[in-house]
């Protein structure tokens, strides 16, 4: 039992962590706001609070509305692992809690990074994550600090 446990500690856990970071590296996202938004940097906790419907505002007091990529998108999974330390199953459990108590609705989903970028460009209240390769001058990548 002890050996099994040490095996688990020594090998499986790092393997799991590697897998996670591997996924994050494979899906390289940037967090964006409209080029017209005054926001330039946020802490991961502040980003998470907006995406988890705990607040409807940016720290400066402007209204904040989050957008999501579809469930199952690797970019989406990487984003939530990083900013909210939640796996897809934990995110689903979180929204089950929020939706079935009437406390909140998940962000609106759009089918692709390009569709997300177009919507964010038009609206200074919006915040989203997109594939780094989809970035252009209509939106602004913000810095997310730990």
């Amino acid at each position: 039992m002890l050996t099994l446990f040490s095996f688990f500690r020594l090998w499986l856990l790092p393997a799991c962590v590697l897998l996670w970071s591997g996924m994050a590296a494979a899906a390289d996202y940037v967090v964006i706001v409209s080029a017209r938004s005054p926001v330039t940097a946020l802490r991961a906790e502040q980003v998470a609070a907006i995406f988890l419907a705990q607040t409807g505002y940016f720290p400066g007091g402007e209204e904040a509305v989050a957008l999501d990529l579809p469930v199952g998108s690797p970019l989406r999974d990487a984003f939530y692992y990083k900013v909210a330390a939640r796996s897809p199953a934990l995110m689903k459990a979180y929204w089950t809690k929020m939706v079935f108590t009437g406390r909140g609705q998940p962000p609106r989903e759009l089918p692709s990074s390009a569709a997300v970028r177009r919507m964010v460009a038009d609206n200074p209240a919006m915040i989203a994550y997109i594939d780094r390769s989809a970035l252009d001058a209509s939106v602004k990548a913000i810095q997310v600090t730990p």
């Binding site: 689903k92 459990a93 979180y94 089950t96 809690k97 079935f100 108590t101 009437g102 406390r103």
Partner: peptide, 22 residues
Amino acid sequence: LRVGRIALPLFLTGDYRKAGYA
């Protein structure tokens, strides 16, 4: 504001205890 039949916000999981998945 809400009007109607509302979940009681009692205990930590009181208002979603029936959704076992959560």
